[in-house]
Amino acid sequence: MTSATLTIAERPGTPAGPASARPRRRFKVTPGGAAIAVLALFLAVVWLLPLVWAILTSLKPEPETTAVPVRWLPLEPTFEAYRTVIARGELMQWLMNSVIVSVMVTVLTLVTCVMAAYAFSKTEFWGRKWLFVLFIAGILVPPQVLIVPLFDEMTFLGLVDTYWGVALPQVVAPVMIFILKRFFDAIPRDYEEAARIDGAGHLRVLWNVVLPMSVPILAAVGIFTFVQAWNNFLWPFVATTDPALMTVPVGLGTVQSAYGILYAQQMAASVLGAVPLIVVFMLFQRQVVRGVTDAGLK
């Protein structure tokens, strides 16, 4: 990975378009281009440094982490910390809980928001306009404002320390309706009218016509919702007191003292807690980037 692998379009007439259509450019390393490459790589190293430090610590035997002077590389690398953390079991439980809660939030968000967006985009009913305005106004309410009364309400409903109690408030994301409606609005009426002439009801039109044409936006909304739910801290923290029901951020946040000052174990737990989404990102970078930029502009 030398600096020369960065191409900087210094020459005029650089063809636009997707990478495949672009002829393989021969590039010469200009001073400006090299400076950009060096800076970009420097920033990348700075940004990766904390992760490298965490991983190196996690591979040390516990006494080595607090040895003076500080040594970056483990003298005797070991997976002992990982073995201990996994054997304790709670982190695996939290990962499982995170999967359950995030899938619940994502599925429920997609189902309820797609249905609502379809209704706003493709049907007429009494009160449609003001209901939409009400939902849009809901975007302005920061969830943090609701935490205290929401906890009071959840106690009343008996949903504290349940998956439903953690998940349901996170489903109320009116911004997703707005994003989906904008996309549905652009689907030509001809398609759905053809289906309706064939006798299809609204559910069939939604399922057979609208959804197949909306895969990219559904992926974007789904990915963004999943990432948010996976990393959400404040509400799950308030809504769970039972360690067996905690998600990864809450579990690692509250029980961090349980690892005491065992830094290798803390870092092993951190690495394990960070891995799932990072792997998802590595596999689906394009979709994640699109999801974040499309749905993230709320």
């Binding site: 970009a40 790589l41 920033l43 990348a44 190293v45 940004w47 990766l48 440094l49 904390p50 992760l51 430090w53 965490a54 610590t57 982490t65 607090t66 040895a67 003076v68 500080v70 990432v227 996976w230 990393n231 801290f233 990864v248 951020p249 809450v250 579990g251 690692l252 946040g253 961090q256 830094y263 803390q266 870092m267 737990a269 951190s270 807690g273 960070a274 989404l277 990072i278 998802v280 990102f281 590595m282 970078q285 980037v289």
Partner: peptide, 30 residues
């Protein structure tokens, strides 16, 4: 480069704070 700059955003807050508390640790931190 995209991976390096964006990966931290995908980490749960508790992971971020655990790592940085350890980095800020006065005697043995990075």
């Amino acid at each position: 480069l995209r991976f390096s700059y964006f990966a931290p955003f995908l980490m749960p807050v508790a992971v971020v704070t655990l790592i940085w508390e350890w980095m800020y640790q006065p005697e043995f931190g990075m």
